[in-house]
């Protein structure tokens, strides 16, 4: 087990390195000229040159990459002499557009995305899994058809549409909830909740639609298994047959999907954050793309990739714990 985890961690590092190289190469062929973007109206070639020099863009790509990696592990210094400033470990780069280092930008935005993702995750698992189970148990009945119909509708709506519907009905039409901008929980729990509740519901609706279908299908498959028949043949109560033997096997595959989906969401809920004006990682990514803020794009891509790759490992480990047939090797 220990050796397995170490091997997986090494593989994970390898993947991140590969990914960062690819991102670097991709950006080097993009037409965007970062120095030009910050340079402003009264731009002269010498200013551009100076900026390029300051951020190392005049160096060969390999050197730039080396400095990027160095920044992550030992930190780096931008500029020279008096104008020099340090970017501390882990330095993911510096946004000349925002005049802020990427690590700080991510540190500021990631917690908001994480709160959005985790809250939405809890909701969608609770709602999606439970209505999925109900649908499975009422297979073919009106409950099943209603739930699956609603899930299909929810599933086929684009996420921005769900978000806009929520805003329209909850905030505008019935005005049950005003507009609230994000506030830290520690400043005002009530404001914090009001700002996040609709985004949570939006996330939950999107994923719950999918998870209810997934749960229903997994449960139906499991309830048709021979060992469920054995459980009944033993004389177990229907409650135990379904609630213990059925759920244990039926929900196991959902762990994988849920882990990966949560990780994906942690990398930034692009659309939901945008619509609800939540200053999270997703919004940072979108903004940096629209402004060609390459260092920030690189940083957010790396963070998102890190979550996905980490989630893969965690899910595999979790699977080995819950499924005795899985051998980690």
């Amino acid at each position: 087990m220990g050796a397995y985890i170490i091997r997986r961690l090494i593989a994970m590092a390898g993947m991140l390195v590969t990914l960062s190289v690819i991102v670097f190469l991709l950006f080097s062929v993009l037409p965007a000229d970062p120095a030009r973007l910050v340079c402003g109206k009264s731009c002269t070639p010498s200013i551009i040159k100076a900026i390029n020099h300051k951020f190392g863009y005049d160096q060969p790509l390999a050197v730039q990459y080396k400095e990027f990696v160095q920044g992550i592990f030992v930190g780096r210094t931008y500029g020279e002499g008096k104008a020099a400033f340090d970017c501390h470990v882990p330095c993911l780069g510096y946004s000349f557009l925002r005049n802020e280092d990427v690590t700080t930008l991510i540190k500021d935005t990631l917690p908001i995305t994480a709160q959005l993702a985790l809250g939405g995750f809890v909701l969608w698992i609770l709602v999606g899994v439970s209505i999925g189970i109900v649908a499975a148990l009422k297979r073919g009945k009106w409950q099943d058809r209603t739930i699956m119909g609603a899930a299909l509708v929810g599933y086929s709506f684009p996420s921005f549409f769900i978000a806009l519907l929520l805003i329209f009905f909850v905030q505008i039409k019935f005005a049950v909830l005003g507009f609230h901008s994000y506030t830290s929980f520690f400043d005002s729990p009530a404001e914090w909740f009001k700002a996040l509740v609709l985004p949570w519901i939006a996330v939950a609706m999107l994923y719950a639609a999918f998870y209810s279908r997934l749960t229903r299908n997994q449960m139906l498959e499991t309830l048709g298994e021979d060992y469920i028949r054995t459980a009944r043949a033993k004389g177990l109560r229907e409650r135990t047959v379904i609630g213990k033997h059925g759920l244990r096997a039926g929900l196991t595959p959902i762990v994988t999907a849920a882990g990966l989906d949560l990780a994906g969401l942690l990398g930034g809920a692009l659309i939901i954050e945008q619509v609800f004006a939540l200053p999270g990682l997703g919004r940072l990514s979108v903004d940096s793309v629209t402004t060609s803020d390459l260092p920030v794009i690189t940083g957010t891509v790396m963070v998102a990739a890190f979550f996905i790759i980490l989630a893969n490992l965690v899910v595999d480990l979790l699977y080995a714990v819950i499924d005795p047939r899985v051998r980690l090797a």
């Binding site: 021979d226 060992y227 054995t230 009944r232 043949a233 109560r237 047939r325």
Partner: peptide, 25 residues
Amino acid sequence: VRSLRGKRMAMIFQDPLSSLHPFYS
């Protein structure tokens, strides 16, 4: 009938692997 199952009447099945729950010892 449930209370009789496994008590007064019991059953074994064709495929013992699929008839045992894979996740329980």
